[in-house]
Design a protein around this nucleic acid. Structure first.
Lengths: 111, 111
DNA sequence: TCGATAATTCGACATATATCGAACTATATG
DNA sequence: CATATAGTTCGATATATGTCGAATTATCGA
């Protein structure tokens, strides 16, 4: 019988697992720093609001298949959003998720 | 050639790995919620400032050897502190580490 | 429709992790 | 010193993960 708190714990454990790989954390931070807070859903590659899979692989020197794998993990954990724009797939971090994580360490799940 | 940012990333990835296992996260939260902020280093089992390895295993139904393994991981990642008190070993979370993690999601590592 | 670019899927491989029980070490107490 | 309690270490085992290259799918432009 699983309760709310238990589900919450599993959720956060999953989020931390997604951030536990150095390359994946690098990708996440790359997206965070190129993602202007409050611009959820508005795309502007020129302004650096989002980055596509290829950008990430190029900047971090990881082959496409591995980037794709990591992106999928980050997305599965709910850490990033993605949307196809022509040939490319843009990725960005929802500021809301960042706030949720900051709060987790400020007011951890009650017992 | 490793730089500061790279070391930082590896450090945080390691911290998140320690929190990526549901049982370990449960143990960490257990310690966080029984650890009164600002009481670093002051022990008082009655007041619930810290918990020993046995307490954690009993509450979460994990065998001692597994608890020991997880505690070691949390400690290795710098998430908890421990000190022997007679037969028992008390564990607690340093509030400073919590603040550091909250800040990580508020002002992520600059590019 | 053909070729180029972008990304995913798949299969393989080596490595890491979670968990347990048994054996061991450390401490306290009669 | 003998015994009980607390914790660690070790070895085994099943499962998960990270990474790559090759093959596949999707989209755009000439």
């Amino acid at each position: 019988m699983s309760n709310y708190r238990d589900d919450q714990i599993k959720h956060f454990a999953d989020v931390f697992k997604a951030l536990s790989n150095p390359n994946r954390l690098r990708m996440f931070l790359h997206l965070v720093t190129c993602c202007v807070p409050g611009t959820v859903g508005s795309f502007d590659a020129e302004a650096g609001v989002s980055a596509c899979v290829g950008d990430l692989g190029r900047d971090l020197e990881i082959v496409p298949s591995t980037v794709s794998h990591h992106i999928k993990e980050l997305h599965r954990a709910g850490l990033i959003r993605m949307e196809r724009r022509g040939q490319k797939i843009e990725c960005w971090v929802d500021p809301v998720i960042l706030r949720g994580l900051a709060r987790f360490f400020q007011e951890p799940l009650a017992k």
